[in-house]
Design a protein around this nucleic acid. Structure first.
Lengths: 213, 213
DNA sequence: GCATGTGGATACTGTAACTATCCGATAGTG
DNA sequence: CACTATCGGATAGTTACAGTATCCACATGC
């Protein structure tokens, strides 16, 4: 298969495929002549993965390159690769280092302790959670503090569902890719489920009279 | 307070504040002279909200304008405003209309039926969930189908925690803003909690020997 | 044998989100 | 009251990102 075939199967324009090749997101095809190469279904798979990370996850192309390089590198442990992806996904929302931030950090720590979670001191998710919580406080939305444990318990169940199937995978590459997809696309799936659950819950407990037109 | 004061309090550059004024994201200050205006803490609050939606939620400026216009308009029902925000947040990941997509749609419908959820036929979250699920299938990640109910039950608990406090709010504007922040920043908070839960669960059930270096 | 397509390099485009400059007018200081 | 910093508002410029488009010498396949 050559570029045009890869393009029509994947729906990605030829020019864009060339761009991804150039940027190192997609491995080159097997060259049969100075200006001829063959692509196979590994390219199709990879292209699909790239598009999902970009379109659903919103990752910048440069990040996708780094993450995929980590996926491909057998020396990179899976958790390190995921850390990279997760760190990339999580916008580094500059924390303002004010009272709200300090309070948010303390609340996250208290929540971890209450629930018996063991999370690295330097996990980006810690900073991220505290940063978002601090923003909520600054916006006058204090109610999340009280609900943190409810969210945490839900997150626990989700994490359990996330990890069990991944642990069964033998091949390192498969496991890395599964973890990556689960993390990035999983966020989008969960967000959609949350919306539907909200709508359903709202319809059930607040009959559509005043609030719902 | 004038722009420079607003700028130093909020940390947003003057030029950017002017840009937001121009684009209609921020209401103009009370003009005291042809070229002089006073800003108050409603501007500070609004600015914080804008930055959160942009930096955490990743919403485009044009969308933020539309969403905030809906928040401000007393004639827009809260759920319509939220629908706008939710629709904006959820990238319209073009569904490829193939077998995978059809199957994903069916799986989402089955899940809704099994859990007794009442969700509008045209809810964007439906399309979004199906679209993400279809992508997972195309990537060879089938395990999510089996886990859909686990995720759904977690989403139910989250939705419950989300909605209860919002229902208490009396003022329409407060309620709209609370729902908006809860939806947009809530996604980010939940994603961070999920990461931490994964790390904690992983450490607990897969002792750090082989996989975790 | 010749139109069609190829890999690869280079240059260009479009959009989004600011950022900088300029203007005449005002505010607050001394 | 003079005067300098700052203001609001308009306009133009910048940067970053993610592609697109063009060009080329060469291959393929009818």
């Amino acid at each position: 298969m050559r570029v045009s075939g890869l393009s029509s199967i994947s729906g990605v324009p030829v020019a864009t495929i060339k761009y991804y090749l150039r940027e190192g997101l997609l491995h080159r095809g097997a060259t049969t002549s100075p200006n001829q190469a063959r692509y196979d279904d590994t390219h199709v798979r990879r292209l699909r993965l790239i598009r999902s990370l970009v379109e659903v996850g919103g990752l910048p192309i440069a990040t996708v390159r780094d993450v995929l390089a980590a996926v491909d590198d057998p020396d990179t442990p899976v958790h390190a690769m995921l850390g990279k992806a997760v760190y990339a996904i999580t916008a580094d929302t500059d924390d303002d280092q004010d009272d709200h931030h300090d309070r948010a950090v303390a609340e996250v720590e208290a929540m971890l302790a209450r629930n018996g979670w063991h999370v690295s001191e330097h996990a980006p998710a810690r900073r991220s959670a505290a940063s978002v919580l601090a923003r909520m406080h600054r916006l006058g939305q204090e109610r999340f503090t009280a609900k943190l444990d409810d969210y945490a318990r839900a997150a626990e169940r989700i994490a359990e569902a996330d990890l069990a199937p991944v642990a069964d995978l033998q091949d390192r590459g498969d496991r890395a890719e599964a973890a990556l997809v689960g993390t990035v696309l999983g966020d989008a799936l969960l967000a959609a489920l949350r919306r539907m659950a909200q709508e359903s819950f709202s319809a059930k407990h607040f009959p559509p009279t005043t609030d719902r037109e």
